[in-house]
Structure formats: C-alpha cells, structure tokens
C-alpha cells in the first residue's frame, strides 16, 4: 500500500540523533529517599553513607524537565526528540499511547553523578490498525550517560515505543465513576435465525438447526439450507457430547472479563456439526485435539447463558 507523501518527511528522520538532555540535579539522597517512600521500596540499602546509589528504575527520573514543560537545563539540546510525533499530529493522528518501555542498566548510578541522555529515532512501523485506531508505532532509543572528566560513561538505555494514531472514534468522556465499571461478557446478537439456539441454552439444551426438507443439520444457524436451499427448518436437541476438533489458547491481549490464558475450541458434536466455544475445567497447556468433551451451561452477568464444554474421560 502506498504511503501518504507526507510520511516521506517523517521517515527521513529515522536514524536521526538528538543532542543531550541534562539532569537538573546530580544524583542525590533526598530524591532517592522520596522515590522509595512512594514506591514502597526499602530505601536503606541505597542510602548507606558514602555509597549512596539510586534504585535502577529511577534512571529516567534524573533527566525529567519538571514542573515547567519543556524547560530543560542549560546546555541541553533545543531540538525536540519527539518532532516526528508533531509531524504526525499535523496530519490528524491526534492521539498517542505508550506501548513499550525497555530499560537496560549498565551499572548503578551514584550520589554526585550528573547524568544526561541522547535520543535516536530508531524506527517507524508501517501503517497499523489496532483496536484504538490507525497509525504508526514509533520507537525511540535514549542512551543515558554519566558526565565524567576522564570520559563519559554509559549507565543505561531506554527503548521507548509509542503508537501515534487517529482514533477509530473519539472516545466520549463518560460520566466519571468513582471506581471502574466491571466489564461484562459481550452478549450475542440474537436474530430470528439464531433465537432458538439461545433460548435452548436458557432451557439447558444445545440445539442444532435442521432442514425439514432434506434433514441436513447445520451450524451456525442461517435462513437457508446450504444443501437443498429450502427455507423450512426446525431444531433438534444435541446429546451435548463431542470432541475437540481444533483449539487456540488466547494469551495476549488480556481482554476482561475473560480469564487468561483462555482456551477456545472448535467442537465437533456427535451429530456432526461443529461450533466454537470456550473450554472449561482444563489447564490451558492440557487442551488437545481429539479430547472428548461434554456441554454444560453457565450463566454470566445475571442473564447470559452460554454453552461451554468440559473434558470428559474417553469412553474406551
């Protein structure tokens, strides 16, 4: 797919190195102690007189601009390492979300050291569409150094990746709740073709659509028999026994309210039709093709009844 021409100027920035951004303060005990206090990290090993050093996860803190945005210490670069994001913003990619933060630590930083970092625009992905919207993954690499008279030393590195995108729909700020609402299972869309199936589930029956002209069973439900093209149909109640025809185990992303890892199977029923369903009562690593299963019905969110399948011992 051809890219918009404005992306040429964005891609031209890939590989560009941006100058130093200095720390306002040298590595110091008060900032370490206060950071530990908030995070709940035991500060005492870091604050030993004479060998004060910073917790590793504090690395970025030293070079933050502070209360006044874009107010960096004297000597810092005046270029904006995030200029590529500004370019994208001008093209309507208004939103940004951080995706990855990968810190590496070469050595501990000690009291009195003055740090700075430099930035390289590492990569811009091809255009991607995610649940949030369409845009680009932008990766920056920051290298952190300690200023030393005999030669500066690298103390660590940060790979930082953001997704810069145009939202699929403007997220309307909803009425603020005091606590986040508990997500519910998505409810099925019920039509004249599928109502019998969901009513069957509520009655504790697994129903299969049957063509009354030729007798062929079919699933998922639809208005026409794929064999004889008859519109006439009724339903039969399945035994609820079947075998795992295929399966996947969802590890990531974790979408609430589902448990993860989440085993999803294609079950072949004794009657011959197949349906997609969730496996229950099986450790995700233990799911296997050919496993005998039995339907059971579970109620979610008060009134949603779903057929799910549980492994049963082989009869033979």
């Amino acid at each position: 797919m051809a890219e918009p021409s404005w992306m040429d100027s964005a891609r031209a920035l890939v590989g560009k190195e941006y100058g130093r951004v200095y720390a306002w303060d040298k590595v110091n005990a008060p900032m370490i102690r206060q950071w530990c206090e908030i995070m709940g990290v035991d500060a005492s090993p870091y604050l030993v007189e004479g060998v004060v050093h910073a917790p590793e996860a504090m690395l970025q803190v030293w070079c933050m601009e502070g209360f006044t945005l874009n107010n960096y210490p004297p000597g810092s670069t005046t270029e904006n390492p995030y200029e590529v994001l500004k370019l994208m913003e001008a093209q309507g990619l208004a939103s940004v979300v951080a995706v990855n933060s990968e810190l590496q630590f070469s050595r501990a930083v000690r009291e009195g050291e003055r740090l700075y970092y430099t930035t390289r625009l590492d990569t811009i992905s091809p255009e991607k569409t995610t649940a949030l919207g369409t845009g680009y993954f932008v990766t920056l690499v920051m290298r952190y150094f300690s200023e030393i008279a005999s030669g500066d030393q690298e103390v660590g590195q940060l790979l930082f990746r953001v997704f810069k995108f145009k939202p699929t729909q403007a997220a309307a700020p909803s009425a603020p709740a005091s606590a986040p609402a508990k997500p519910k299972r998505p409810a099925p869309g019920i039509s004249d073709d599928t109502r019998f199936f969901w009513e069957g589930a509520r009655a504790g029956q697994l129903r299969i659509q049957r063509c009354t002209a030729c007798g062929t069973l079919r699933h998922p439900p639809g208005p026409v028999c794929p064999q004889c093209h008859s519109f006439e149909w009724d339903a039969v109640t399945a035994s609820g026994r079947g075998t795992v025809y295929s399966f996947v185990v969802m590890h990531y992303p974790e979408v609430p309210p589902f448990e993860h890892p989440n085993p999803i199977a294609l079950i072949e029923l004794e009657e011959g039709t197949r349906l997609i369903t969730q496996l229950v009562g099986v450790a995700p690593g233990d799911a296997r093709i050919g496993q005998k299963v039995q339907v059971e019905f579970h109620t979610y969110d008060g009134d949603l009844v779903l057929p799910q399948f549980r492994p049963v011992p082989d009869a033979n």
């Binding site: 590793e56 996860a57 995706v99 990855n100 933060s101 990968e102 810190l103 590496q104 630590f105």
Partner: peptide
Amino acid sequence: RLCDLKIKL
C-alpha cells in the same frame, strides 16, 4: 540488582 526492566503497557 536489576539488569533490565522491560514492560508492555
């Protein structure tokens, strides 16, 4: 000591 700290948000 931490050698690295890599997170996905």
